[in-house]
Design a protein around this nucleic acid. Sequence first.
DNA 1: GTGGTCTAGACCACC
DNA 2: GTGGTCTAGACCACA
Lengths: 132, 132, 132, 132
Amino acid sequence: MITIDTSGFIPIYEQIKKGIKSEVSLGVLKPNQALPSIRDLAAELVVNPNTVARAYRELELEGFISTRKGKASLVAENSSALIEKEKTRLIEEVIDRAISEARKFGLNSSEIKKIVESRLKNQERRSEGVGK
Amino acid sequence: MITIDTSGFIPIYEQIKKGIKSEVSLGVLKPNQALPSIRDLAAELVVNPNTVARAYRELELEGFISTRKGKASLVAENSSALIEKEKTRLIEEVIDRAISEARKFGLNSSEIKKIVESRLKNQERRSEGVGK
Amino acid sequence: MITIDTSGFIPIYEQIKKGIKSEVSLGVLKPNQALPSIRDLAAELVVNPNTVARAYRELELEGFISTRKGKASLVAENSSALIEKEKTRLIEEVIDRAISEARKFGLNSSEIKKIVESRLKNQERRSEGVGK
Amino acid sequence: MITIDTSGFIPIYEQIKKGIKSEVSLGVLKPNQALPSIRDLAAELVVNPNTVARAYRELELEGFISTRKGKASLVAENSSALIEKEKTRLIEEVIDRAISEARKFGLNSSEIKKIVESRLKNQERRSEGVGK
DNA sequence: GTGGTCTAGACCACC
DNA sequence: GTGGTCTAGACCACA
């Protein structure tokens, strides 16, 4: 489910954190449900277990999951609520960043809208084609 | 002109590179025009000269500027053409990233479009308010 | 393997780059093989790690090696092909420079050929003598 | 007569020094003959006068030319002898460097000889074509 | 342990 | 004054 981009500057553990949050937000992971073990997820993402461990650790610090030694980590009871609050912020943040980036290159609002629409269509077409 | 975000994950030298490219793209910097000296720009951005030097060095390797010892760095003759090519790539990249981020949280195309439009308006209103 | 000439005008990082390229070209380093770590190579060459880091960074930008944080740098999959292209260019460049240098001092083609041959023999004799 | 390569790492003043030496060696400049003024040569080479001044200064230190304030610099009486000694050394040095460069990339003596011959022919053809 | 970024500060080559 | 190279050493991200 989670996809890792190793080429960029965004740390892998941040990408994992965001991935878990998005899965909770989507209902793929539900409160009190067990998360994949650190080893399993690390194997799946082809990533060092320490990296997954760090993502889990920080998610726990932020209250999204709870971990106990020797037992699987659980999605926190109130994680949905927490994430719902974060969700808007996260999305607006990334969209704001994209917009300001485009503006830096001199695009105005309507031009930005056009590109967004064309990229949205572009991606839809691609994902239909792949059929996944 | 260039603003540095020291909080994030994007290296300062990358932000400087992007800043210069956007200024060339906007026509603030024109081909054969002198760039600010490394020391000056470093002072302006409150950053170490080496960091600016790295940005300039990489911009030269990529062909956007030309530097000679003892002389100011110049925007390359063909930089506009080079950057025009990059511009589209850079903008689409950042917009694609924002879109995929939003999709991860379960938003569909029309929802994304709505948020984009609302953020665009939001920013317009703010910049009008500031009047700058 | 790599020898650094600190006396000349050629930057150390350039000498390191050329050294790595020649080792790939010779097959001492093979695609997907790990390069010596920055710190190790720096210690071996008695050079600052930053200098080696710069060489590695530029080699990566040029596509000869690939690096990931926390992992050793690897010789790129397609490095052999890339370097084969560079090899001819590099050698012709240095030979052209030597020839034009000799011509500046009034030597004609056959005189240059003679000197080249005598230097070639000279070196062979020396390397035989050393027996290494 | 002297050609300057601004792209490489070899300092311009070194190229000028070598150029003067080669002209003395070729007899273009003769002992006791006046050298071009710093300003004139600088203008001709499109180079900063300070750079030419440095070349002249070092040539004087090495005994190849003599300068007196307010008067043109002169080729030293014994410059030919001095340069004849240097000439062999300079040429062998640059040829040795080219050879060792080629060897680094795995070429053997006969391969190097072939490249040298082909480059020699290549240059002859080009200079005939240009007719200069 | 690895590589990546940044700072501070030195020295050089050139204008 | 300019940019270029190098060192020394800190801190971070990742394995």
